[in-house]
Amino acid sequence: MTSIPRSDKLFFYALLPFAGIVLSIFILLLKILVENSLPIFIREGLGFITSNIWRPSETNSRIEYYGILSPIVGTFYTSLIALILALPASIALTVFVNEYVPHRFKILIVNLIEVMAGLPTVLYGLWGAFIFAPLLKDYVMVPLNNYFWFIPIFSCKPTTPSTMFTASVILAIMVTPFITSVIREAYEAIPLSYREAALGIGTTKYEYVKIMLTMIKPAILAAVLLGFGRVAGETIAVSMTIGNSFSLSMCLFEPGYTISSLIANQFGNAGFYHYMTYALYGAGFILLIIGLTLNSIGLYILVRWRKSLEET
């Protein structure tokens, strides 16, 4: 019985072109991405992601071969280390802001965290490359290698400040504010009744915080997954500090590559070779898939957790 009024329909049609543009941009991007990465998947198959050979040739395209195992491993490796470092920091910041900071300073700290979250990444990169990396080498990497050389990840002598370790630490610094904001939102969303219940049984603050953190475990997991998506896609600060070289080593003190820093470094010259552009597109495609998968899982967990909170 209810029909949509004519003016509503007209307005809807007037808005559609904008949606259409967004839709067509998306389809266009997807088409370009698939079109340009298919050739490398077809040519090299699984070898593209399982081998660590980077063999461009300007003269003979038949001997060109591109395997991105090293950047893939590098991406996961640096992201993993970054998250291991960022997670305790994020949890601590959440607890700090909500439990220990006097109320009037809370806004200040939250602002600082947000400033950090949005700071242009090239500034992290600049500072990382010129100021932080040399310090990290002299005061962290060298000592770690001296005393813990028997642990594989610290086993090689750091020869340059630009290493996977450096990139990981910088990524950790950059992603901490983001993970904190996700965890903090969840922490603050815990209903008052639970808080009172926890405090009512005579807990110390430590015990209370432990109960609260257990309650938001799924949100913490989601924050880590979402953070992973961010870290894996980060380009500029990484490419300025990771050393940009194909290595497949357990040792963190060697230069390395991530998929995004590989693209940043190689795409400018890729046009000189027959297959390199395809290879880099293929790498980008894989990066996108990794990011989308982790993000979707993260969001799914977060949404489910929020729902469960509403239901109880």
Binding site: A89, A92, F96, Y100, I131, F132, K205
Partner: peptide
């Protein structure tokens, strides 16, 4: 409880330090 409190404060300050740096 005390230990936890100082741990949280120290880690938080370390996490915020890069911004100032």
């Amino acid at each position: 409880d005390r230990f936890f409190k100082y741990l949280v404060i120290v880690i938080s300050l370390i996490a915020l330090m890069p911004l100032f740096y």
